[in-house]
Amino acid sequence: MAIFPPAQRIWWKEPIERSEILWITIALVWSLILFFMMPYWHLVGEQNLSNEAYRIKPDVFAERTEAMADKYTVREEGDTGTPVVHPPAGGDIYMLARLWEWWPVLELEKDQTYRLHLSSVDWVHGFSLLPENINIQVHPEYEMVITVTPNRAGEYSVVCNEFCGIGHHTMVGKIYVVDK
């Protein structure tokens, strides 16, 4: 019994039951499949996070984001005071996280590819694009660059899903995807 020392002192020479061997083999094969799915998806899949990231000072990131907004703002989002920015397709776009907003609102074109720069100027935040359910962690002093290709037109929200203090649940931003 498992609560007493093994009955056979030389337990490591005991034969292994057949169904155990079979199960271990099956489980090992499955483990290998689980493992190789990840590199495989890097080769053929279209949803991989890039490894491109830079160290950046929060004020530098804020400047770049504001520069983009100054250049490409097309309107204001309702009466929130947040600009809606429509940057040219194929270019660099910025979204900045801070307590407690995602800034600015972006307007993208369907099936176009953008280089999305994400960073925070204060605490750790969570970029959660809904209803797509794409989730990316956003850190201060790290700038992550992800190439995104929106594949459906519509109105998307960016919810913060990393706890960032008492106003966390009010931190919601927006991305519009429009047909060209």
Binding site: P131, N133, H169, V172
Partner: peptide, 24 residues
């Protein structure tokens, strides 16, 4: 979670947010 509801979040109706998201 598969519908995107965030963890550690007080209000999924976003009543106090300026641009609330409407969960299904």
């Amino acid at each position: 979670g598969t519908l995107g509801v965030p963890r550690r979040h007080w209000d999924m109706s976003f009543a106090d947010a300026t641009m609330p998201y409407d969960f299904p």
